[in-house]
Write a protein that binds this DNA or RNA. Structure first.
Lengths: 136, 136
DNA sequence: ATAATTGCAAATGCTTTGCTTGTGA
DNA sequence: TCACAAGCAAAGCATTTGCAATTAT
């Protein structure tokens, strides 16, 4: 009955309230990258007393605990996804808003090389591709 | 007496007011990536009647005309730079906030390949590296 | 002349926060 | 029990906008 996010909360000593459990559940079941409003809509279907402030507080809490990842794509409000096992980047369909995840080791390696060459240790990065579907 | 940005405005049919000339001048002379507040501070030193609303309107106008580029780095307000001749990406020093520009053709090429492989035409992208200086 | 631009202040949209009541460990 | 969390409404912050006065062409 418990999900990955709940397990991580327990492990990290994050107190599990009904609201947090519900938000965790909804996030764990989301295949997309919902924003706070969308999350609030989804949890409200199950418990209509949860306030949007709680959703804001909870995603922030989860993010700080490394349980979820936050993304600020161009021109949108912040969107969230369960923190992935392995890093990936995103391609955003500029027509539909659809988000496709991808991994490219070569780019990752080159990023490290670039940073190093400039005298920096790479701590974090952001790579987003914006494109339109090629019709066949 | 006129700068690159003023020339571009003329070419694009953007009406040149005193305020816009001044903002163009300040942007053209900026080596860094100032935000709107900082731009407002800089123009105010020369003309203290310019309102922040005008700065907002002007950077937006310039951006839509392709004259300046807007960047939303992590955790900061929007920052602007004169639109570069040739594309570059940014490395942000997470300790000082300093921004270093770089170009890497290999990464650019790989981005196109990734998009293509996913069935997309790459229209735009965002690549930001966040790092800390390696002390020697 | 007159359509576009400015300055000001008010409005917006997303997010955070203070405070009182409620609750998980 | 009691420190912490939730709900609500108010505040915050960056940015946008309505409107009357001003200005570039």
């Amino acid at each position: 009955m418990s999900n990955e996010i709940e397990n991580l909360c327990a492990k990290k000593g994050v107190r599990l309230t009904d609201q947090r459990k519900l938000i965790a559940k909804v996030m764990a079941e989301s295949e997309d990258h919902p924003d706070v409003d969308e999350l609030h809509k989804r949890v409200t279907k199950i418990d209509n007393k949860i306030s949007i402030a709680t959703v804001y507080r909870t995603v922030k809490l989860f993010e700080e605990a490394g349980i979820v990842s936050k993304h600020d794509f161009k021109g949108n409000k912040s969107r969230y996804e369960q923190a992935p096992e392995e890093h990936h980047d995103h391609l955003i369909d500029i027509n539909t808003g659809e988000i496709i995840e991808f991994v490219n080791e070569d780019i990752e390696k080159l990023q490290n090389e670039v940073a190093e060459k400039l005298g920096y240790k790479l701590v974090d990065h952001r790579l987003e591709l914006y494109g339109s579907k090629i019709k066949k």
